[in-house]
Design a protein around this nucleic acid. Structure first.
Length: 213
DNA sequence: AACCTACCCAACCGCTCGCTG
DNA sequence: CCAGCGAGCGGTTGGGTAGGT
C-alpha cells in the first residue's frame, strides 16, 4: 500500500452515488480528522463534514469498529473468551452488551469471534449436554430459560456504566447490592440453571433485554 | 504452480427503538 | 397520539488469504 489511491475513490459507487466497499487510508484520515474536530455523534452530518462520499452508517461503523482509539486488536485472551461465553449464556446474541464488558473490543469483533471460533465449540458442547440430558430426562424435569426483561431505559441497554445500574426485575439480582451485579448474575445463573425460581415459566427463547426477541 | 476449500474479518443491509415536532 | 428521522443493533455477505491437494 503506497500512497492514497485517489482513483479508487471514484470507484465502487452504488446506484445512489455513495461509495461502498473497503475504506482507503485517505478516507480513514478524513473520518478521523472529522471526529476529532466535531466529536462523535451527528453521524448524518459526518459525510458532509468530512468530505466523504459515504453513507452515515458506513462512517459510524468504520469509526466504531476500526478507527476509534483504544480498540484492542489481536487474539482474545483466555479471560476474555471465558467472560464472553458466560455473557453469551446470559445475554444471548447481544453483541454490543457483551462487547461493553470487554474493554477495547467492539461488537463486530465479538460477533465475528463468536461466529468463527466459539459457536462450533458451544454447539458441540451443547450436543454433548443433550446426549447427557437424554439419559437423565426420566428423572429430571428440564426447565428452560425464560426471557429476563429489563427496563428499556436502563443504562445496561445503553452501554453506560453498570455501577449505578439497578435491575428492575428479579429481586435476587437487584437486592444483591453488588456493584458487579452482572458477575453475580453469571454465577447465579450457572448455579441455578435448573432452578425454576430463577427462570420462572420455563419458556423457550433468548433472554429478553428490551429491544429484540 | 495451479486450483480448491475453509476461514477470517470488514462492511453492508434491514430492522427496531427513541426522540422530536 | 402519531409520523418522520436519526441512531444503533444483529444478521448476513463478500473479498482476501492461508492451508491443503
Amino acid at each position: 500500500m503506497g500512497g492514497f489511491d485517489v482513483e479508487a475513490l471514484s470507484l465502487m459507487e452504488g446506484s445512489s452515488g455513495v461509495r461502498k466497499g473497503a475504506w482507503s487510508q485517505l478516507e480513514d484520515k478524513l473520518l478521523r480528522d472529522c471526529v476529532h474536530l466535531y466529536g462523535e455523534g451527528k453521524w448524518h452530518l459526518v459525510p458532509q463534514r468530512a468530505g466523504l462520499n459515504r453513507c452515515r452508517k458506513s462512517c459510524r461503523l468504520r469509526w466504531l469498529n476500526y478507527l476509534k482509539p483504544n480498540i484492542k486488536r489481536g487474539d482474545f485472551s483466555e479471560d476474555e473468551v471465558d467472560l464472553m461465553i458466560r455473557l453469551h449464556k446470559l445475554l444471548g446474541n447481544r453483541w454490543s452488551l457483551i462487547a461493553g464488558r470487554l474493554p477495547g473490543r467492539t461488537s463486530n469483533d465479538v460477533k465475528n469471534f463468536w461466529n468463527t471460533n466459539l459457536r462450533r465449540k458451544v454447539l458441540s458442547h451443547n450436543k454433548e449436554n443433550v446426549k447427557e440430558s437424554e439419559t437423565t430426562r426420566k428423572t429430571h424435569q428440564v426447565i428452560k430459560p425464560v426471557p429476563r426483561v429489563l427496563p428499556k431505559a436502563s443504562s445496561l441497554l445503553q452501554g453506560k456504566s453498570m455501577s449505578s445500574f439497578k435491575v428492575g426485575v428479579g429481586e435476587a439480582v437487584s437486592s444483591s447490592g453488588s456493584e458487579n451485579w452482572w458477575e453475580t448474575l453469571l454465577d447465579e445463573k450457572e448455579e441455578n440453571i435448573n432452578n425454576s425460581t430463577c427462570f420462572p415459566g420455563g419458556k423457550v427463547g433468548a433472554i429478553e433485554l428490551g429491544r429484540r426477541t
